[in-house]
Design a protein around this nucleic acid. Structure first.
Lengths: 153, 153
DNA sequence: TATGAAAAGTTTGTAGA
DNA sequence: TCTACAAACTTTTCATA
């Protein structure tokens, strides 16, 4: 299914990525559509893959995951098997929330959520046991100014 | 309200942060609880602030936001008013999805989602017009190995 | 092709055994 | 706790533009 996003779809997405707990009645009212005209559009957006999933966002501090760490990684192995191994490791380790191959002089950036510095060290040991890295330096987040899943639409 | 997370709560959170579209019936079945008992726990988790919000996750590529950029920022103004101004700017600019004050020699790290390099440049201009920065270097994401909102529970 | 109204089917939240 | 009920919400059907 191919689809072009019209202004109403955009508004629906904008509202749903802010709060997906609204009813189709309310959502419809907010975009000026009937209950099921709105429902149809949401379903279409789901089927077309615009909406990937519905999730609950958990407060990391409340569950004891107070520390975000960014790892800047450089490798000297640029073959596909190193990347495979690294990609698999990042997928397997649940503390790793993000992993990105980058331009510039750092090769990879990894975003991690852990309880504290001790937990970070455990994770670091786990990671270097699984993948060889020429250089890996950690930067700790002191303050989270912003952190959102809302895309600019 | 204060609460200690028991193993069933943990499992509920783990399931809901993967897929919040399940009914309380299904969720209850998966954690071995009646519909009602499960519903109560979910409500308690919401009220205690473990569950911050319910949202829809949108595929960035499908809405034409194919490029993630990380900005590494250094400032020479370490007063509270610079930080205020910077924090406000990051909140106001919807393309900025994350902004972090860091340890180490880079002061701030900013995560950005835009359509392409041209859109990035527009955003960059917007940002430097609002806050003074001693140094700001961009790193573009070539490949997203992992990107999740699921916390390790 | 997209809509709205209404009816049917589910789920949710509450109250009583 | 559990069961049962009422309210709310979701989804289908159908008629219309």
């Amino acid at each position: 299914m191919n689809m072009q996003l019209d202004p109403i779809d955009r508004r629906i997405l904008r509202l749903l990525q802010r709060d997906a707990s609204v009813s189709h009645d309310d959502l419809g009212a907010q975009v000026g559509l009937s209950r099921n005209a709105c429902w149809r559009r949401v379903r279409a957006l789901e089927q077309a893959g615009f909406i990937k999933k519905r999730v609950v966002l958990i407060d990391p501090d409340q569950v004891g995951l107070g520390l975000t760490v960014f790892l800047m990684i450089r490798t000297d192995r640029h073959g596909p098997d190193w990347l495979d191994q690294f990609a698999k490791a990042t997928r397997d380790i649940p503390e790793i929330l993000g992993a990105y191959r980058m331009t510039g002089d750092l090769d990879y950036l990894v975003r991690v959520r852990v309880a504290d510095v001790a937990a970070y060290d455990t994770l670091y040991q786990k990671l270097i046991r699984r993948v060889e890295m020429a250089d890996c330096s950690a930067s700790f987040v002191m303050e989270e100014l912003k952190e959102t899943t809302e895309l600019p639409l």
